[in-house]
């Protein structure tokens, strides 16, 4: 299904108190463009995880900083870009938990990126040190207009 390009943008203070506002924003756009409830839940959670990482790690709870959330809808995909201007990190360097050893060792934390990759079709990270960091997450529409189920991409 070809979708006309649309852009949505939210600039919001870096506070955990506003994670709910971020989720409501992302979920309402995802619902509006036709994702079913399960897919809306996944997108909402993935964006929460990305923004929680920004609040905790990039900005280290500095509420004077802002997070930018841009959603772009085009013909076959829903793209969310979360941008911060804080301390960067290289996503490639973050070790994804191996779930077996994770369960065995009962490790705490570090689940956000793992969840984002499970929930979205594509997740990538781009950092310009000292300028900005971007996490880009994509969920595809199917060509016949139905939405995808769980992605096979890992």
């Amino acid at each position: 299904m070809a979708k006309k390009e649309k852009n949505y943008h939210l600039k919001i203070p870096s506070r955990t108190d506003d994670l709910e506002v971020i989720r409501d924003f992302v979920a309402s756009v995802a619902k509006k463009v036709g994702f079913d409830g399960d897919e809306v839940n996944k997108i909402e959670l993935a964006v929460d995880e990305a923004c929680t990482n920004v609040i905790e790690h990039a900005y280290q709870y500095d509420v004077k900083k802002n997070i930018d959330i841009a959603i772009k809808i085009d013909y076959n995909r829903f793209t969310v870009v979360v941008t911060d201007r804080g301390k960067g990190f290289n996503m490639q360097d973050v070790e994804l938990p191996d779930m077996k050893s994770y369960l065995a060792e009962i490790r705490v934390g570090g689940l956000g990126i793992y969840l984002m990759k499970q929930l979205m079709d594509e997740v990538d990270y781009h950092s310009e040190p000292g300028v900005k960091n971007e996490v880009r997450m994509v969920k595809y529409f199917l060509k016949d207009g139905k939405k995808k189920g769980k992605s096979n991409k890992k």
């Binding site: 989720r23 995880e49 009962i106 705490v108 934390g109 689940l111 969840l115």
Partner: peptide, 15 residues
């Protein structure tokens, strides 16, 4: 609703 921050609390206490 639950995110990894909530899941982390369960993980932090279970052991």
């Amino acid at each position: 609703y639950i995110s990894s921050a909530g899941l982390g609390v369960f993980m932090g206490f279970i052991e």
